[in-house]
């Protein structure tokens, strides 16, 4: 017996860590999809197509980042679509009442995290499944939307229209919106938090094995509550960005968006049971969805439901991939 036999007790491991395989698969998928677009349609190669994908999906990206935190702990947040709509709705209503935009922003950005915090507490304190708690949150937030108004409220505020129309571009005429910059900032901060803070590492630990995390003395409850709060905050930011994009608050906007978000996160390589995934993967997942959508728009002959069909197929393929590479080492 020697220590050498122990060091070789290690199971086979390729040069490529297995946990990176899903993210790389998504990257390849993205490149292939983009390549198809470029080869089929001349206009696709214009870099503005890529920028437009970001512009159209900036809010989705922000919400997906929040969802990544939740899914990394092994949870789920079904309330995000409704919270996005509620945030946009509240902003529109308050602006219509003549409140100053700065105050509206603060209020709108507090509601989402507050709801997320409450849901997190319910999940932790009463030990209820996240699915059902956030489902309740989803209905609640959607109800608030129609409670505020059952019709769409237009936004005419100067600050909002400025944010909506601002184009940050180069002399060649390519541009992105403010939303894209905000989304990038959120992505960077989130990636940093997950990689370099105790909170971020606890998120991974809980997703890996919550029982172990507890026995290792990690603040499991606090972290759980925090991820739903983070998701609520991201949804709120997403709601603001959506209201920049549409310049209105509509009670039935973003219905079913939570499912797109979950799909993006999973296609981005995160495992629904938690503990494995990256913000970078989520970015790729959102881009894949966006590029597919663009492709189908470019084609023109295809019904937009094809997007859903393709996403459905991809989602299934990725879950299968995760199962095959056995990302859960249990």
């Amino acid at each position: 017996m020697s220590s050498t036999s122990l060091t070789t007790g290690r199971t086979w491991r390729p040069h490529l860590p297995r946990r990176h395989v899903p993210v790389l698969a998504t990257l390849v998928l993205l490149l292939v999809t983009y390549g198809i677009g470029v080869s089929q349609y001349r206009a696709f190669s214009n870099i503005q197509v890529v920028f437009n994908v970001f512009i159209d999906n900036g809010f989705l990206l922000v919400v997906a980042v929040g969802m990544t935190f939740v899914i990394l702990t092994g949870g789920i947040d079904l309330s995000v679509g409704s919270v996005v709509a509620m945030t946009a709705m509240v902003s529109a209503a308050l602006l219509q009442d003549g409140l100053p935009p700065a105050l509206v922003l603060v209020i709108a950005l507090l509601i989402g995290p507050a709801l997320g915090f409450l849901m997190g507490c319910a999940i932790h304190v009463f030990d209820i499944q996240p699915f059902i708690v956030t489902l309740a949150g989803m209905f609640f937030a959607r109800g608030i939307c129609t409670f505020i108004s059952d019709a769409s409220i237009p936004i005419t505020d100067g600050f909002w229209t400025t944010m909506s129309q601002a184009r940050i571009g180069n002399p060649a005429g390519n541009f992105v919106s403010i939303s894209v910059l905000v989304a990038f900032a959120v992505v960077l901060v989130a990636a940093y938090v997950l990689a370099y803070t105790r909170f971020g590492r606890n998120v991974y630990a809980i997703g890996g094995n919550a029982q172990s995390a507890l026995l290792m003395g990690l603040p499991v409850g606090r972290t759980r509550i925090a991820v739903y709060t983070v998701s609520g905050l991201c949804s709120a930011v997403g709601g603001i960005l959506l209201s920049f994009y549409t310049l209105s608050g509509a009670p039935l906007i973003a219905v079913g968006m939570e499912l797109d978000v979950i799909a993006a996160v999973v296609i981005g390589g995160a495992v629904l049971t938690g503990g494995s995934g990256y913000v970078f993967g989520t970015v790729l997942g959102v881009l894949v969805l966006g590029v597919i959508q663009t492709l189908i728009t470019f084609d023109g002959s295809l019904n937009s439901w094809w997007t859903k069909i393709v996403i459905g197929g991809l989602l299934f393929a990725f879950i299968l991939l995760q199962r095959l590479i056995g990302i859960r080492f249990t």
Partner: peptide, 25 residues
């Protein structure tokens, strides 16, 4: 074994008391 198999060996030893500077690991 009450550790998290999805984390690295080093992290499993130190999680909860990671060496930090300015709050960053």
């Amino acid at each position: 074994v009450n550790l998290c198999t999805n984390l690295s060996v080093a992290e499993n030893i130190f999680i909860g008391r990671e060496p930090r500077r300015l709050g960053l690991i």
